[in-house]
Design a protein around this nucleic acid. Sequence first.
DNA 1: TGATACCTAAACAACT
DNA 2: GAGTTGTTTAGGTATC
Length: 338
Amino acid sequence: MENHTHTLPCLSPIHSPTNPSKALSLSPSLPQPSATVPASLPLSPPSLPQSSPSHLLQSSGGFKSHCLSSSTPSDQDDLTCLNWLHQRNILPLSKMPLLPQFETPISNLPSSPGKPPYSFSSLIFMAIEDSPDKRLPVRGIYEWIVNNFPYYRTAPSGWRNSVRHNLSLSKSFHRMQRDKSQSIGKGSLWCVCPEYRPALLEVLKKTHYCHSNNSSLLNNSVLLEAVDHGQTATCDNMAISGLDNPTLSSNAPCSLIPEHEELVAIQSVELTDEAESEKDPLGDSGYIEFHYYQCERYQYLVLPGNSDLDLETVEILQLDAEAQEAAGSLLDLAGGNH
DNA sequence: TGATACCTAAACAACT
DNA sequence: GAGTTGTTTAGGTATC
């Protein structure tokens, strides 16, 4: 199976020529500017199969994994559009435990991420719901899963059998009679039975929330703990002042070296005039950059500058990066509050 | 402890 | 014939 893992040129703030020593702009203890949660954050690999069924995958996105040492010309090309590198925010994310896919030490990240927490039924549901026509052939479901959950790029192929097994066995999905006038290749199109959609959505919500709860995001107690333990993270010469919270900046610094970076493409959102006021603050760059830092018990997430993210948005960013787009967008569709 | 949900593997037939 | 798709069965684990 094709492995879409790409390397990322060194983007650490240490080496960023335009990295300002900027104090953090977000404080969990202060009112945050409102920002609309992106309806979708496709985390698709940089090179996508042309037959990719998902409209989300039409973006020129890149799911880039950590690399601090090597780069290739193509990588550099990919980065030429990253004009947002001029400015960064660093957000204290949470104390341990790490994100689900980072349960192993970040510095020892495997090439493939951890297994997504979603059941195959949920994966199939997300795949179908994410398709423009709300119907997909089996191959399309495969591709959606692979493109959105990197784990399955390298997983043994047995999961495909499980997908088919679920499709056949689950009452939630039903096979549509193939229109032979359309050239869709082998097999039939699968869709979600409307009567089972609420149940599927409920399962998805539960899984989604369950796996976002173990990283209590930006709660004040974390910051207070940091105060108690005398922690301030610094990145090179840049002191992380602890957002607007002066308590963090008053502590002795510890070195902060990026341990994990990801570039995540976001879909450019077509905005109507009416929707302009809700413009995605991350939408300009086309990418979200994840920089995971660890300073003792804390993680930090570097976001592109001008990211007037509210806590809700940040929490989504903290979710399993593989699943956030699919689950988040579906929950948005369902009107769920993250 | 039993029921349930889910995962995984395997076999097989039908189809392209 | 090879590969894919769809169905079915079986056994295992985890959770409630």
